[in-house]
């Protein structure tokens, strides 16, 4: 089961982060956080960018962990590495709109 979790863990983190960032955007807009300014940008955008960076950092950490630890079945090592890369690309690509698109309209 642990080997199966190794394959699933990175995409699972992407999915959770993707949902969380989308939720943060919704909550932030509802709470008016877009109006507040933080280091020259909207406070909400700063939070969203932080969440994006944290997601990528977490996935880098997961990738590092997968590289450093051995699975019970060597075959799952390659699969989990690919799914981790997919999750990382997905995180960078699907969440990069936090940097430039309008947030609440």
């Amino acid at each position: 089961m642990r080997d199966l979790l190794r394959i699933l863990i990175a995409p699972l983190i992407w999915l959770a982060a993707f949902s969380a960032v989308y939720a943060l955007q919704g909550f932030g807009c509802a709470a008016g956080l877009n109006e507040a300014i933080f280091v020259g940008m909207s406070f909400l955008r700063a939070m969203l960018i932080l969440a994006w960076v944290l997601t990528i950092a977490t996935l880098v950490g997961i990738f590092y962990w997968l590289e450093r630890t051995a699975p019970r079945l060597p075959w799952t090592s390659a699969i989990s590495r690919i799914t981790a890369c997919v999750a990382m690309v997905a995180a960078i690509w699907s969440l990069f709109p936090v940097t430039f698109t309008s947030i609440c309209n």
Binding site: P11, L12, F18, Q25, T83, A87, A90, P97, V98, C104
Partner: peptide
Amino acid sequence: VVALAFLSFGLWVHHMFATGIPHMGVAF
């Protein structure tokens, strides 16, 4: 197959592009 399964859960709003969702959500 695993990647496809996970990515498919991050697409549901593309059926709702015409509902007036904010640009950022649409872009995600």
